[in-house]
Design a binder for these strands. Structure first.
Lengths: 112, 112
DNA sequence: TCCTTATATGCGCATATACGAATATACTCA
DNA sequence: TGAGTATATTCGTATATGCGCATATAAGGA
């Protein structure tokens, strides 16, 4: 519980969470969408994964991250809380715009 | 939101929250109940208050802390999450025992 | 195999946070 | 007013955290 709360109580990680709930994203999409360096994006993603908030899978050379289904079911109230307070996250609107741009230009050549 | 999450994602502060939801407590009760030093207890309480999770009032020389009603209403899902996961807090059972002892021996001479 | 791309991780630095001890402040009561 | 008690705050220190840079690892394609 503490690990989950610590993981999510960071602005950058909240921003990641807020975008990734829309759809799975690979590291380079997160980087581009939020304007993070590669190492920083990777590190925050691994913290979220270690806490059980995100899950990941590999497709070719890309690592895709998604919200962990167990997090949604086991930490339901916290999940609902985050979902209903997304707009309070600093830079949320901006991130959403960038998200749409990123998805539009098909950053990662892989598509199913 | 970030401030609230940061405030509550600390083991000591979670322990304080877990006991204080039962009833208002003064600083010396928190100290005794959780085995904290005076300065440490005071500091954590002020962080929780600053984040809007707790509220306080003075009675003679005692400072009583309680859960902030606005927190309960405005951060409902988070509040529910915390309430339903109290037993996961490290040392919770022990703290509860100490809470009962503290309340029994009427630490602070003031009673309404 | 060599090169390119994507991702993870080690390292060092700057800053944030938690803590105890000491001190300051506020209130009560004799 | 002065002693005693409760609480808040300051200070110094130890540890944790976030970050960029450099490097390691892994996968794909020429």
């Amino acid at each position: 519980m503490i690990e989950i709360l610590k993981a999510i109580s960071d602005e950058t990680r909240l921003r990641i969470f807020a975008q990734i709930i829309k759809d799975d994203m690979c590291v380079c999409e997160i980087e581009a969408c939020l304007g993070l360096t590669q190492s920083n994006a990777s590190r925050h993603l691994s913290i979220l994964k270690k806490a059980g908030i995100l899950d990941s899978y590999k497709k070719a050379q890309w690592a895709y991250f998604k919200v962990n289904e167990n997090f949604i079911s086991q930490e339901r109230e916290l999940y609902e809380y985050l979902i209903s307070h997304l707009s309070e996250i600093a830079g949320y609107e901006e991130d959403c715009k960038n998200y749409n741009k990123c998805k539009a230009c098909d950053l990662c050549s892989f598509k199913e």
